[in-house]
Amino acid sequence: MEILLIVLFILMIAGAIYALEAKDLLSAVVSYGIVGFGLVICFLLLQAPDLAIVQIVVETITLIIMIAVVLNTTREEIKDKVPQSMIVYAVLGLIFMFGFIYFFILSLNGLSEFGKHATRMATEYIQGGVKGSGSINLVTGVVLDYRGYDTLGEITILFTAVIGVLTVLRSRGRKKE
């Protein structure tokens, strides 16, 4: 189980690196799909079928939108020389990354080991979930009953993002200038 996850993670990291380094933007976008679809398999292995269903469709839609954008603008990666000031940024970025890893490894001690989750909060939801919400799918019970406010906020964000996209992209109103 854990070995399978490690293999998948290495595959996803390789896909991510290729997506960032590819010369052609279209192949970058397509190899970005490796990460998303690898995530679907990880969700299935980690017993989260709800998430797998959502992720597989959302990933497809994101890829369609990204490919539409790349095909309608340009596919060429930027090829100009790396300027001097970039090296400073790179060094600063590396220092930041090492600091990040250092603090992460420090904080690993506070986490319980993989697969041995200390179920302090989960016990409440698992034992009282069916009686409290009436839904035998506990994820739906948590999303819509215990944490209904979160869901309301989430769909508000979705609504706002769609309005934002329409505002940014719409040129129907501007045509009559």
């Binding site: 980690l46 017993q47 989260a48 709800d50 998430l51 959502v54 992720q55 959302v58 839609i61 994101t62 939108i65 990204m66 954008v69 989750h117 179920t119 909060m121 989960a122 939801y125 698992i126 979930g129 506990l138 994820v139 019970g141 948590v142 999303v143 944490r147 979160d150 869901t151 989430e154 964000i157 979705l158 993002a161 769609v162 934002g164 996209v165 940014v168 992209l169």
Partner: peptide, 27 residues
Amino acid sequence: FVDPLPQAMVLTAIVIGVATTALLLGI
């Protein structure tokens, strides 16, 4: 059972993620 709480959180985060990615692409 596995913990349902992180799954519920991530379920909403995925859908928000696609919307924000689309907004960035639009810009």
